[in-house]
Design a protein around this nucleic acid. Structure first.
Lengths: 340, 340
DNA sequence: GCGCAAATCGAAACCGTTTTGGGCAAGGCG
DNA sequence: CGCCTTGCCCAAAACGGTTTCGATTTGCGC
């Protein structure tokens, strides 16, 4: 249309210096006027870069459950991708097929890198990806101390150690732990922190005061109800997720008890956007946090993982970045002194 | 490696008939032995089909909010894509940039179709996509009666009409509506159903008993609290989302009232996997629903949208499929008789 | 006016597939 | 034996860009 070669058009749009400014302007104008945009697939083929990042999100641990933190994590990562011109490729797979999905993404060459979510015991994915030579960043980390890959994680052990210490300091002795499924690394570490705090005061954990389940409202309710109905019920709960804690609160109220007075609750808060713990930032309220919580934004983690991955893809040599974030400990209305 | 041409390899793997069975076997074995997999981008370029579906998920309505129903919707759609060999391309964009994101996906040719989420007043996206000649399916529908595009929606008006009727039948007269943001089509229709039910009994809506906000726990709490503190507070709440209702329940309990006895609540339940309303299927409990609810699985909607879209892409001629699903009305413990 | 560097552009190769249009041998039929 | 089909395979042309290499023009110093 403009009497120019594909070469020049490509260079004009790509911002290369060897085209006259006026030509570039003409090309740009014609492009927007006619809605022309370079075909991503063809460009990818030519450059060898897919300009896309893959996320594999597992669904179901037996049930049809999708972890609600993904929405926020993905939102965070997505912001970064969008800013850098990358696409996000999502693969939703049943829990067992996960490995196949990773392998497929790695070899089919339609992503330049991967984010690995929630590593588990003896997770085969990391070895697999390292073998495939594809850059990746892990959200969380594998149980054995990793040495040579990038990850972003929170200090789960320390967070739950501090939370347990807080409850102990308040005078609680019967502290229940409502954890996620303990084949997941984060749940394992939280349990360790909990046990460590108890042991430091010469206390042992009572088996009937710990539960490990999917982090749903229902599971929280069921476990809390069972414990509250037993002999010598707990006076405090340590709960691994906000959503689970909603079920705990319901169970407490079912029994005619008041949270924060009769029973204390400390949660871990991922700062999900639709589930602010108290007034969300910017709402301008004076309302404090509902739950006392260890907290760390999963959305920020998504952003950070994406940044690290993109840096690893773009800039050589690939840097190994390992970040372990400290959680904030916020005091809310859900904790009070233990029984005398 | 096998002394075969690319042609034959392509046909062997693609399952075309003009290759000897024994050759096909050799190719297959060599492929898995060496981890060969056809490059998706090159294949896409050659065939003209991207083998990917785009989803644009808006973040923030001013705040940094990502709608929690996306996780489940996407999980449903993802199942279908995976089964058909399609990828899912996600674009997370700030609310205003949505249109640009759609246009980009449409013209860059890296998707074969799109799912449009949550259409709004005078939504430009539909016209835009129709112009681009890209197949799409809308989750929800536009306010003006659509004629020629596919969508899957629930009968929001009827659901809220029935819910309101239920509360009226129970003797409630002061019924509050806690709705989503009413520029969204679904929220508009729910309001219509609510008003229609009131009008049918000669009742008008009190402005101070309706609220329209982001569907967060906090917004639900704030609105319910405000209403409960006012003169002649409502005896029942109609709440547009489960999460919002958690805030309502908290507000009710803050006031020392009991949900289901002092104040009734009816919600709309999207059946999110991590937020089962009562015992999730398969849990084997005898516990009934916590909330009385109109309900419809958003995950099923995701599956259905994906099916329709893939059918439209694969089979010609493109069929327009328009489905309006009826919600189930389930009775839970959150509703009781109104004041005498 | 000449030589040389810089600016500007184009031709052609290439990315890794799929698909079209044969080619060649074997087999069936008259 | 010649012809036609069938079975199996390959060469080459797309697909729509990017990039390398080279050509032509322009600018500048002398």
């Amino acid at each position: 249309m403009l009497g120019l070669s594909p070469t020049t058009v490509s260079r004009a749009i790509g911002g290369y210096p060897e085209v006259k400014e006026e030509t570039r302007r003409r090309v740009r104008e014609a492009a927007i006027a006619h809605g022309y945009r370079p075909n991503r697939r063809a460009a990818s083929l030519a450059t060898g870069r897919a300009m896309a990042i893959g996320h594999v999100i597992p669904t179901a641990f037996g049930h049809e459950m999708v972890n609600p933190i993904f929405a926020d994590f993905i939102a965070g990562a997505g912001e970064v991708y969008a800013g850098a011109g990358y696409d996000m490729l999502l693969s939703v797979v049943p829990d067992g097929d996960e490995e196949r999905a990773y392998r497929q993404m790695a070899t089919a060459g339609n992503v330049d890198g991967l984010i690995v979510h929630g590593p588990r015991d003896g997770d085969p994915r990391i070895a697999l990806l390292r073998g495939a030579g594809l850059p990746f960043v892990v959200h969380g980390r594998a149980p054995v101390e990793p040495t040579d890959y990038s990850f972003v994680d929170i200090d789960n052990r320390r967070a739950f150690r501090r939370a347990t210490d807080l409850l102990l300091d308040l005078g609680h002795r019967l502290i229940a732990l409502l954890n996620g499924i303990e084949t997941m690394d984060f749940a394992r570490r939280r349990r360790d922190g909990y046990l460590e705090a108890l042991a430091a005061r010469g206390l042992g954990a009572r088996v009937d005061l710990t539960a490990s389940a999917e982090m749903t409202e229902h599971a929280g309710h069921a476990a809390a109800r069972r414990m509250l109905d037993a002999d010598s019920p707990p006076t405090a709960f340590l709960v691994s997720s906000h959503i689970m804690a909603l079920g705990v609160r319901r169970a407490i109220q079912d029994r005619g008890l008041t949270m924060g007075r009769d029973v204390s609750v400390v949660i871990h808060d991922d700062m999900l956007s639709y589930l602010a713990n108290g007034a969300p930032p910017g709402a301008g309220g004076t309302e404090g946090p509902v739950f006392t919580a260890t907290r760390s934004s999963v959305r920020a983690a998504g952003r950070r993982c994406a940044e690290i991955l993109l840096a690893n893809i773009g800039g050589h040599p690939p840097q190994v970045v390992q970040e372990i974030w400290e959680c904030e400990l916020v005091l809310g209305g859900s904790t009070g002194r233990g029984p005398p």
